[in-house]
Design a protein around this nucleic acid. Structure first.
Lengths: 192, 192, 192, 192
DNA sequence: TATGAATGAGAGTTCATTCAT
DNA sequence: TATGAATGAACTCTCATTCAT
């Protein structure tokens, strides 16, 4: 349905710009120039709308990641391509980025956000384990490494791509460089 | 002021658990078993309360960081100690962590959060520049490196210390290892 | 809009009887047997509601005055008809009278009330100037004379028409008699 | 008591400037630099305070009027002096003037205001009756004439003395001139 | 006498949601 | 499908008043 898509897009934009709580249903339908009834025809509640946005967009991101990696054998390259694909996707869907970040801190969406994050981490863990098996990465907790990589991705995306509106390349180069270095050493450096 | 401190603490807890918007002034004073007026005797608004919490706690964190680093000459060690101190502080003040993260996504606090973050980044940038001068870190954009380090800190803090309630050590070890590796290489690894 | 008119009327009555501050939005909608939301569907605030009432009613009064005077050449007669028309209108809209009087003493409406009053005075001044030119009134400050006339109108309206619920005639006769005498002397009487 | 007088004066000023409802007890005691307890030591309520102000000041005004008239035999001169004295008093106590006017429109004070006004009118009526007996004023309803005179006094006081801050003379001259003319004619002018 | 923290009813306002049309 | 008036619970905030100290 065209209307449904319009609502989804319009709401995404407004949630991203002004926040979920700060955006009322009335404002969403006003911007679209339709009545309130339309909203409740397509969505059972405001909450469901955000859940839907979250679900749809993280699905899209994951599909893109998997497509970009499909034919690559080397796990380190899969990691690198995964990083670049994610950041390019965030660049192209900047509005979703803000939503992802803030949803994690809004009670009813925390679990959805958690689930999405778990899936992304699980994907990364797989590559890291492969790399450990192949001796490219030292034998550390793969999940922690995956989380670290995601942490860098998210931070540089927020600061350079989202806040400062740069194209994705520079931040992606830095992320790849930092993370591959962080991962690659065969043994952790000694702690003082 | 005992009451003021009680309100601050109680509100911090509730904001951290359930979110700023999801916590009403009525609930805060109810939990304390006092009248609504008490709240507005000590704070001019709910907004001011959160701003106060943010201000106070980030000041405390920064003081702790600076105290822990004061007498250390080697910039790489300063970075490591900085990471460990931050994560230990977050462990001891888990409730503030959630607040820092979510405040960044709530309109009236975004600028405060931004300012706090800028200060933290500026501190880290100083150490990184020193390390670059001393040849310990390759000559890359120091701010980007600082952001990457902070990204790892925040992510591992959230997942292991905040969500899973682990003590700070394990996550801090991993963060230090990952970041020092990420920073240390004399030249960035070639990008595919 | 039926509802809007109901709210306007109901609020006018209650404001007149009990005062603006003493009448709550809750009481207005309760008396109408509707929900609180209805009020804010039609008016953006309680303040705007009173402003609206003031605007609408003083416009109506002025229209009535001008219609009653339109075809009258003699300025003294215009003044007399103006007095009678005003008092008749106040009799027919007794509730507005109290509102006009009290609005002048409520901060946010003082300027509106002032403006309304200025318009009324300007109208009267025109007639008085005409009468001075024609030699019917001695050459005194026309604005002061106009204010004096309005003072008499307001006082007798309040006491006899509003407080004591008399029809307008007796008070209007007295007002006309007093004012035309007050105005007419060719020279002011000597001051002791 | 000094404190009591301070409270009375301070409150009068603030009520006059900003209105009764718009001035809180907290603001009154703050301006005096004392605690809230002081207020409730001297007055049982905010309402009682205003009632007290009203009572005291109208008593003072009346005393002044009576003193100024005591030895004057001619009723017309008594009226004139009464007008001048009132307006001079209002000039010297401008803050009370606003209070008198607005109190009439605040529910719990309407009756006090009414009573004060009744006393003033009764005084004027006495002089007017005397003048009628002596043939200086035509035989009309003396109360209506008194109300008319008071209406002029109040209006010119408000506009010229209170709003525009002029000294009392000019407005008083005009009031006397207008009212004595309005009163003096032996027969009311014919009504069209 | 005086303080000022505490109370709590009640104010104005918002907004997700419903439903007759 | 669509409208938009209506609902009413919940919200933030105010303030006259009380009372332990």
């Amino acid at each position: 349905m065209q209307r449904r898509a319009q609502l989804l897009e319009c709401a995404t934009e407004m949630f991203a710009e002004r926040g979920y709580h700060e955006t009322s249903v009335a404002e969403i339908v006003d911007r679209l120039g339709v009545g309130k009834g339309v909203f409740y025809w397509y969505f059972s509640s405001k909450e469901e709308l955000l859940a839907e946005i979250l679900r749809g967009s993280s699905l899209d991101l994951r599909r893109r990641q998997q497509a970009s990696i499909r034919d690559i054998a080397d796990p380190m390259v899969r990691i690198e391509i995964g990083i670049r694909t994610s950041m390019q996707w965030f660049y192209e869907h900047r509005k979703y980025f803000a939503l992802f970040q803030s949803a994690a801190n809004i009670e009813p969406f925390a679990s959805v956000a958690r689930k999405n994050s778990d899936v992304a981490i699980a994907d990364a863990v797989r590559h890291i384990k492969d790399a450990i098996v192949e001796g490219q990465i030292a034998d550390q907790d793969p999940e922690m490494l995956a989380q670290a990589v995601v942490g860098v991705i998210e931070k540089l995306t927020r600061v350079y791509i989202f806040d400062r509106d740069e194209p994705a390349d520079r931040a992606a180069d830095a992320t790849v460089s930092f993370c591959l270095n962080g991962l690659c050493r065969l043994s952790p450096i000694p702690v003082s």
